[in-house]
Amino acid sequence: MPEILDAGTGQLLAVERLSKSYGDFVALKDISFSARQGELVCIVGPSGCGKTTLLKCIAGLLEPSGGTVRLDGVAVTAPPKRMAVVFQEYGRSLMPWMTVRRNVALPLLKSTPKAERRRRVAEALEAVGLSEAGDKYPWQLSGGMQQRVAIARAVAYNPEVLIMDEPFAAVDAQTRADLEDLVRGIWERFGVTILFVTHDIDESVYLGERVIVLSMSPTVVQEDLTVDLPVERDQITTRALPRFTQLRTHVYEQIQRAKRGALR
């Protein structure tokens, strides 16, 4: 029986003893962690440790073999209503037959009245700096801009939890830095809880308020680290802080340990 670790402690998202196997292959062995309302948590781990599998289980897109995911105390068995996912493959997640504006409005068509929908789409596009691109098609935009559209779509949906699966793995370094600051900005502006998966150690420390380090598969949580950097972050000054260097070195060592552990 999975024990409930944090019932009634005000946790928004709780992952409890989650496991996932494919036949004999154990991808996720035993994952437990939780996130408070409004937290920005980065999940980092070596390649092939099942980060995407974990996210899909949390997002209700994949059924775990064991354990549970709770959102607001309710077990997640299907994609929950107040959760949005930004996928790594922005080119395949946006609909090429819809304009940017239609793409962002798509999840709102069912339940949001027209005027309210228009306002939220405009606000989301403004938040990602794409107010002018509403009538363009995704394929007329650069990769970084396409991922901004996907972020705008998630923001307009007004989720409680925003899940991002290595969203910047396929963009160049300069664009990546801009998008990292965009995520911090959206987090501060909308107060949304963000779960950000990455394989980039620097990115996890720069972005997160907390970093959860995963081991090699069969995957467990290797460390749950609080990032005690100032809330206001800046690509130049924050990355130059001695504390930033300490934290990234620490996470780096943890990941190296995780890889060595897997070899034994």
Partner: peptide
């Protein structure tokens, strides 16, 4: 596309909306 399908699922699009859009 599998990502398009998962996008539709995670945003809880209705069956009719999924077909049309």
């Amino acid at each position: 596309d599998s990502v398009q399908r998962e996008t539709a699922r995670s945003y809880q699009l209705s069956a009719a909306r999924r077909v049309v859009s």
